[in-house]
Design a binder for these strands. Structure first.
Lengths: 335, 335
DNA sequence: TTGTATGCGTTATCAA
DNA sequence: TTGATAACGCATACAA
C-alpha cells in the first residue's frame, strides 16, 4: 500500500481496459458495462482499496464534489449550527464543505471567492450578510443563506423574519404596550432591513408607529448597549424595546441596568435568534427561534438540486420561525 | 470572460511559451526567468484575471493547498474559535480548510477521512477526541489538536490541562476545601483522562484524595447532572466539585438546585474552558480559560511547517491556560 | 533564459 | 459491450 492504487491498477487486476473500469465504477455509466465484468471490477477496486483521484477527475470533468461555504465569522453563534446543517446535507451526497470567513469585509470576501474559484468547486453557499452585488458569475451554482438578492434571481434559504417580528409585536401589543422602540440591526444586511420593515409594518397594523428607532452598526452587544442609551436619551418613554437580534438585546440589558431601569418591570425587551444561553439570562429573553440547522441543511439540498439541474428556476425557501416567550416581556405598567 | 483563462492564454498574450509563463507565475521558479519577460507575463495574467486551475496543479504535483479539518461537532462551543484560528492560520499561506464533523463516531471518522484522502489534501488537522489509534498513514502530514498520541510521534497542539487543574485545586484548597469531588469527563478522551490524573496529582500534593469521583460518558449538561446526583448520593459531604468542563458544571448547577443545595454557599463548583456566557450564569462560573483561537492558529502554523518540511521531528506545543475566578467558588463553610 | 516534450489519473468520444 | 485514444491544465526534466 505504498502508492495509492489508480484506475489502471484496478483495470489490470480485473483484466479489462481502464476505460471499462471507469465506466463500471461510475454509478452514472455502470449500466453500460456487463454485470459480470462490472462485478469483477468492483471486486478488484475493493481489494486494492482504490479511491479515485479527485484532482484528475476534476480536471477532466471541470467540477468537483466540494462546495464553498462562506460566512462572516464562525464565532458568531448563529453560524455553527448552519454550517453543521450544510455539512450534513452535503455529506449525504458525498460532497464536502470548504469553509471561509470574511468578517463582513468585502475585500476579504472577494479574495476568498477568487481563491475558491480556482478550486473547481461544484457550487457555493453564501451566508455573508451584505446585500449588494451578485458575488459570482451567472454560471456558478449559488445558494444564499439568510439573504436574498433584490432581483430574486438566486436561490436562497431564509427564515421568516417578518413573521417573527409580527409575532413579537402582537405579543407586546397584547400585553398593553403602545410605546415600542426598535434597536435595528445594520441596514446593509438583509436581516436588519427586513426586521425593521416588518416592525414598521406590524406596528402600523395596530395603528402604532415606533417610539424611537436606533440603528446599530453591528450585531454586537456593544452596539446594542450604545443604541439603547441613544434611544432612551431621546425619549425615555418606550415601555418595550424590540432588538434586532439577541446580541443587541444583551447590550440593551446592560444599558438598562446601568440606567437603573428594570427589565421587564420598567421596560420589556425582545431579541431574535434564540442563541444558546439566552434562556439563562436575567431575565430569560423573549425571542424568536430560527431553525439554523435546518436552514443549513436545506441550503445544501437546494444547492445539490441546482448542481444537478442548473437550468431550473432558482427556488426561494422560507422556513418558519417560532416565538419563544420568556420573562423579559411583561404587561405594560400603567405609568 | 466566458471560460476561465488558462496558463496558455496568459503565455499567448505575453508572447511566450506556456512553460515560461508557468515559471514566471510560480514564486518558486520565478528567478529562472528574466525580469522583463516575467513582468510581461504577470501583467498578462492580471489582465486576463488568470487564476491557476488547482485540479491540474494537484494532479501534477500530487498535493494541494487544501487541508482537512476534522472535529466532533461544530455546535460544541469550543470548536468554532479553534476552527476560526485554523482558518486564519491557513489563509495566510493561501491554504483553505475542508471541514468535517464526526460526532465522535469512529466509523464516521473513518468514512470522512477516506473521502478526504481522495482529495489530494496537503494535510490534516484532527481535533477529534478519541485517543486510540493513529488515524492516517505515516506519510500524511497531521497535527492533532487537544489530543496527543501516547507515542508522541505526531505533532500536536494542546492546552496545559494539568496546570489548569492544579490552579483550580490550589484555589479550592486555599479556600479551605478538603472534601473535593470530581465529575470526570469521558476517559476515552485525552482531556478527560488528563484532567482526572491532574486532579489526583494536585490533590495528593496537598495530602488529599478525591471525595468521590464520577465519570461522565459525555461532555454534556445532562451527563453532568446525572453524575452530580450519583456523586452526592454516595457521599453528600463534598464541599467542592471540580467538573470536567463547563457543560458538566452547568449540569452540576442544575442538580444542586434540585437537591436544594446552594452554590457556592453549600458547594463550590468549577468548570473548564470558559465557554461564552458562563460568566453570566448564576453564579458566574469559576473556570479555566483555554486559548481556543490560538490553539487553532498554532495548529495551522505547525501543519504548514510540517508540510514544508515533512521530515522534521514532530513538535508538541503546549499553550498556557488562565484561571478565571468567579463567584461559584467560596470559602469552605465550617460545617 | 527560453522552448519542447511528457505525464499526472480520469473520463468522453469514437471505433470495433 | 469493450478497447483505443485524446484531452483536461499544469509543472518539470531536458534540450536548445
Amino acid at each position: 500500500m505504498d502508492k495509492p492504487a489508480t484506475i489502471k491498477d484496478v483495470a489490470e487486476l480485473a483484466r479489462v481496459h481502464a476505460a471499462t473500469a471507469s465506466r463500471a465504477l461510475n454509478p452514472q455509466t455502470r449500466d453500460k458495462v456487463s454485470p459480470r465484468t462490472a462485478a469483477r471490477i468492483v471486486e478488484a477496486a475493493r481489494t486494492l482499496g482504490y479511491s479515485p483521484n479527485s484532482a484528475a477527475r476534476s480536471l477532466r470533468t471541470r467540477t468537483s464534489s466540494v462546495v464553498g461555504v462562506v460566512i462572516p465569522d464562525l464565532r458568531n453563534p448563529v453560524f455553527p449550527p448552519i454550517v453543521r446543517g450544510v455539512e450534513d446535507g452535503l455529506r449525504e451526497a458525498g460532497y464536502l464543505a470548504l469553509l471561509g470567513n470574511t468578517d463582513g469585509d468585502a475585500e476579504r470576501e472577494r479574495d476568498l471567492l477568487a481563491t475558491m474559484r480556482g478550486q473547481q468547486l461544484a457550487g457555493f453557499i453564501l451566508a455573508t450578510s451584505k446585500r449588494d452585488g451578485s458575488p459570482l458569475g451567472p454560471d456558478a451554482s449559488v445558494v444564499l443563506v439568510n439573504r436574498r438578492t433584490d432581483a430574486g434571481d438566486i436561490a436562497s434559504v431564509v427564515a421568516d423574519s417578518a413573521a417573527g417580528v409580527h409575532a413579537l409585536v402582537t405579543l407586546l401589543v397584547t400585553q398593553g404596550h403602545t410605546r415600542i422602540g426598535h434597536l435595528a440591526g445594520p441596514q446593509d444586511t438583509s436581516t436588519g432591513i427586513e426586521r425593521y420593515r416588518a416592525l414598521l409594518d406590524g406596528l402600523s397594523t395596530h395603528g402604532l408607529s415606533p417610539s424611537g428607532v436606533e440603528f446599530c452598526d453591528a450585531y454586537s452587544e456593544q452596539a446594542g448597549y450604545d443604541a439603547t442609551l441613544a434611544l432612551l436619551a431621546d425619549r425615555a418613554s418606550a415601555t418595550a424595546i424590540v432588538a434586532g437580534n439577541d446580541m443587541i438585546a444583551l447590550g440593551c440589558y446592560r444599558a438598562l441596568a446601568e440606567l437603573g431601569l428594570r427589565c421587564p418591570e420598567d421596560v420589556s425587551v425582545t431579541g431574535f435568534n434564540d442563541m444558546p444561553f439566552v434562556d439563562q439570562q436575567r431575565p430569560p429573553l423573549t425571542t424568536v427561534r430560527i431553525p439554523h440547522y435546518e436552514i443549513g441543511y436545506e441550503a445544501a439540498r437546494l444547492l445539490l438540486e441546482r448542481i444537478a439541474n442548473p437550468t431550473s428556476p432558482p427556488k426561494r425557501i422560507v422556513l418558519p420561525v417560532q416565538l419563544i416567550t420568556r420573562a423579559s416581556v411583561a404587561p405594560a405598567s400603567p405609568a
